[in-house]
Design a protein around this nucleic acid. Structure first.
Length: 320
DNA sequence: AAACCGTGGCT
DNA sequence: TAGCCAAGGTT
């Protein structure tokens, strides 16, 4: 964590002893309106924010954005929506083409669930994306965040949108901490809920604005506090940028040699292949035959891969 | 409920 | 691909 660069300013004097207890009192009333006003001027021009976007397009974007940066999603989303504008279109598409269009967004099971979601929207809701959070959550690949986001961004409704960006903003501005806890807590939900304006339109605006603030200003690594519209309200800044108190964060899982790397290689090869890929060719993808076998079995179980040619020349292909 | 699930950019 | 991080969800 690099301490943010501040404008020339004495270390403390302009911020006299602000008490920074955990879950200290209510945040300044200015927080929401100022953040919303900042967003109106600084919002990125992302394709799923275009005026002619559809609720389905918003849902598609939210699924693509799960753990994938917006810059990487944008071009894929645009082509995707041209090709399959409605849930009915996506539901009827060959799954192999869906997986190829997903490309390198990562976590291809999301693509599978998105297609299942499209079919569920058609079957359960006559092709109309529901505005009810419970109905949304019941859709494949839609969890608490995505359901709340669709309520806000697709329907302009009131919801508590608590993604990694909002969690970080709230942890800093309200909680005075460098980072939120490793996993979401009830206290965070309470704090976030308390910030959501009563009127639906204001709530939706706050959701978009707070996420954007976390994404482009209040970032995890090098926050740009000099550009922050609420820096003077921020308890983390007032406290002198104390370090992360969650010292025992889990170390990242690593990559080289993991099943995820193997699965990624297999999927990559299958996306590039025009037809079925012979197992002899699959075997060349990874030196450890046992691990490879296990990973292929897993991909088949997940519905991402199919076995074909059971006799002489067995092969793998993307599901039809 | 801790683990698993891809990929690429940034520090 | 060192380590971290990204508009999480599922089991």
């Amino acid at each position: 964590m690099r301490v943010p660069t501040e404008p020339p300013e004495p270390p403390v004097p302009s911020c006299p002893a602000v008490p920074v207890a955990d879950d200290a009192g209510a945040p300044a009333a200015d927080l929401v309106p100022r953040t919303v006003a900042w967003f109106a001027e600084h919002r990125r021009d992302l394709p799923w924010r275009a005026p002619d976007r559809t609720p389905w397009g918003v849902l598609v974007s939210e699924v693509m954005l799960q753990q994938t940066p917006a810059a990487r999603v944008a071009p894929v989303w645009t082509r995707w929506m041209e090709r399959w504008p409605s849930p009915r279109d996506l539901g009827q598409a060959p799954t192999a083409e869906v997986l190829r269009a997903w490309g390198r967004l990562g976590y291809p099971r999301r693509a599978l669930r998105l297609q299942e979601c499209a079919r569920a929207v058609v079957d359960r809701h006559r092709g109309v994306v529901p505005g009810d959070e419970g109905a949304l959550r019941a859709l494949p690949g839609v969890g608490s965040y995505t359901a709340a986001a669709v309520v806000a961004f697709a329907h302009g409704g009131r919801s508590v949108v608590l993604d990694t960006n909002v969690r970080r903003v709230v942890a800093r501005v309200v909680g005075g901490h460098a980072l939120p806890p490793p996993s979401q807590t009830a206290a965070e939900v309470r704090q976030a809920t308390a910030l959501v304006p009563a009127a639906a339109a204001d709530a939706a605006a706050w959701a978009a604005a707070s996420m954007e603030l976390g994404a482009v200003v209040c970032t995890a690594r090098s926050p740009r506090c000099t550009d922050c519209p609420v820096a003077d309200l921020c308890r983390w800044r007032a406290a002198g940028y104390p370090g992360d108190q969650h010292a025992d964060r889990r170390r990242s899982q690593g990559w080289v040699g993991t099943d995820r790397q193997v699965r990624g290689r297999v999927m990559h090869a299958l996306r590039d292949a025009t037809g079925p890929l012979p197992l002899t060719a699959v075997a060349d993808l990874w030196p450890d035959a046992g691990q490879l076998q296990r990973c292929v079995d897993g991909l088949v179980a997940d519905g991402l891969v199919q076995r074909v040619g059971a006799g002489e020349d067995p092969a793998l292909r993307l599901p039809g």
